[in-house]
């Protein structure tokens, strides 16, 4: 008993302090750093001013619209065949400023200044004037964290808008991505537009992703092509968040 008390008198306070430090760290781990991102959003608020830079948006927007047009023409053709076409309900989108980048180089994420207070939910889809950017993976009251499609762990169901060949896109490095096809010999050439596929469960169909840059059909186990993402992810300052319910 005496030794225990002696020990406690000598080391008790240290013991408690270590407990507190680890406890706080574990709490932050479990809440996925919500506290820190909230604090961060408030800390950098005074440094943010100015409206979105309109001119810079336009160039990317034109490119996206071109891609969208090809997709829509194709879709329109198909829709004419379908009589029971129902229009999907459109929810209002939220525009948000990028206030931070991922906290580690191995992760490709961005932090936005709109959170659950403005109605953002996990699974919502993020786009920019160039096209698809990513998906919301964590929301705090004033911030939301987005997994970019350029992250190597990201997978997006995609198709060629010219002929509907399906596949999926995984992130690469420096604004490129790789598209892997389900077909053995897909009809694909440089310059083809790539959009999200209707089979994707994480993204709504028909969002522009990028342009085919180079083709490697000999890849095993499935043919691959390099995609140049049209959204200038590295240089973005503003993005749009679209409500989307994940299908699973």
């Amino acid at each position: 008993m005496f030794t225990v008390r002696r020990w406690w008198e000598r080391y008790g306070s240290q013991f408690i302090l270590i407990g507190i430090v680890l406890g706080v760290a574990l709490f932050i781990r479990q809440t996925q750093g919500a506290l820190i991102f909230e604090l961060y959003a408030h800390a950098i608020r005074p440094f943010q001013t100015g409206p979105p830079p309109d001119e810079k948006w336009r160039e990317g927007e034109v490119e996206r619209l071109e891609g969208q047009l090809t997709a829509l023409e194709k879709q329109n053709e198909e829709l004419k065949k379908l009589l029971d076409y129902k229009e999907e309900q459109q929810l209002e989108s939220i525009s948000a400023r990028i206030i931070g980048r991922s906290v580690d180089h191995w992760w490709q994420q961005i932090i936005l200044d709109q959170g659950s207070n403005e109605g953002v939910k996990e699974g919502y889809v993020v786009t920019s004037p160039g096209g698809l950017v990513g998906r919301v993976i964590k929301v705090t009251p004033h911030t939301s964290r987005v997994l970019l499609i350029s992250d190597p762990t990201s997978r997006v169901g995609a198709k060629l808008s010219r002929n509907n060949y399906m596949g999926y896109i995984r992130g690469g490095t420096k604004g490129t991505a790789t598209m892997v096809f389900y077909e053995k010999v897909p009809n694909v050439k440089k310059g083809d537009q790539v959009v999200t596929s209707p089979a994707s469960q994480l993204f709504p169909p028909g969002i522009h992703i990028g342009v085919v840059e180079s083709v490697h059909l000999q890849q095993n186990p499935a043919p691959e092509v390099e995609i140049k993402l049209t959204a200038p992810i590295e240089f973005l300052e503003w993005v749009t968040i679209h409500p989307h319910t994940t299908k699973y």
């Binding site: 760290a25 781990r29 906290v103 994420q109 699974g123 919301v136 964590k138 997978r155 499935a222 994940t246």
Partner: peptide, 27 residues
């Protein structure tokens, strides 16, 4: 390390590689 893990974690499920060859099995 714990704190930084929390700040990079992905808890929303992501669809993994290779396995989604049959589209209906994506789920």
């Amino acid at each position: 390390g714990l704190i930084q893990d929390g700040m990079t974690a992905i808890n929303v499920p992501t669809v993994p590689d290779q396995t989604i060859f049959t589209l209906s099995d994506e789920t």
